[in-house]
């Protein structure tokens, strides 16, 4: 969870179910651009129901109030449900791929760091290593920070994906913020 100096939560995670149809991602992206909302990260893929896709959008609520973002999203005809995922009540994951400088002097340190974080080595050359790490976004942040001094040549993060955490009864503790579209 990213926090501003004042202590306010800056990034909120929205889990958005949309119809799995051409152009829907463009509609969502267009809405954010048109209304001046900032997307911090966005991940999209089909769900267990082939008619639906799930978008995990991390929005920067410094740019606009979350309520407006949700209400405007909800007006898109192809948006079926919007859920705000509270970080305390959800599981979040992100994947990082990085190609890092690893000459004979530093190679050992990069390998060690990757081991500590339980990452993997995906490719090796004389001077470079490509590593991957899957985990909570803050863990991925930490790993990226620690890799930087070695020299990151290329980096790709997926943006976070998230689902509501299950409670003891097995009911997910979602806070559905989706109103009714107009």
């Amino acid at each position: 969870m990213d926090v501003t100096p004042g202590g306010a939560v800056r990034h909120h995670t929205l889990s958005v179910l949309v119809e799995n149809r051409p152009g829907v991602l463009a509609r969502v992206a267009n809405l954010f651009s048109r209304r001046g909302y900032n997307i911090f990260s966005l991940a999209v893929a089909p769900t267990e129901d082939e008619r639906l896709s799930r978008l995990t959008i991390v929005v920067d609520v410094e740019s606009s109030p979350l309520e407006q973002i949700v209400k405007q999203l909800d007006k898109l005809v192809n948006v079926v449900q919007i859920t705000e995922l509270d970080p305390r009540d959800s599981v979040e994951r992100e994947l990082l791929l990085a190609t890092v400088q690893a000459d004979p002097d530093t190679r050992g340190q990069v390998l060690e760091l990757t081991q500590i974080f339980e990452g993997r080595i995906l490719a090796v050359s004389h001077e470079l290593l490509t590593v991957s790490l899957e985990g909570h976004p803050t863990k991925v942040d930490d790993f990226e920070q620690l890799l930087r001094p070695f020299g990151i040549v290329e980096l790709q993060r997926t943006g976070r994906v998230a689902l509501a955490r299950l409670d003891r009864d097995g009911d997910s503790r979602l806070r559905s913020v989706s109103g009714r579209a107009s």
Binding site: P65, Q68, K71, D74, K75, G179, S182
Partner: peptide
């Protein structure tokens, strides 16, 4: 307003009715 997004868009209502 029939459009819930209008409630609070510019001025926060004391009572908003969609």
């Amino acid at each position: 307003d029939v459009d819930p997004a209008e409630l609070g868009k510019v001025r926060r209502p004391d009572v908003g009715i969609a």
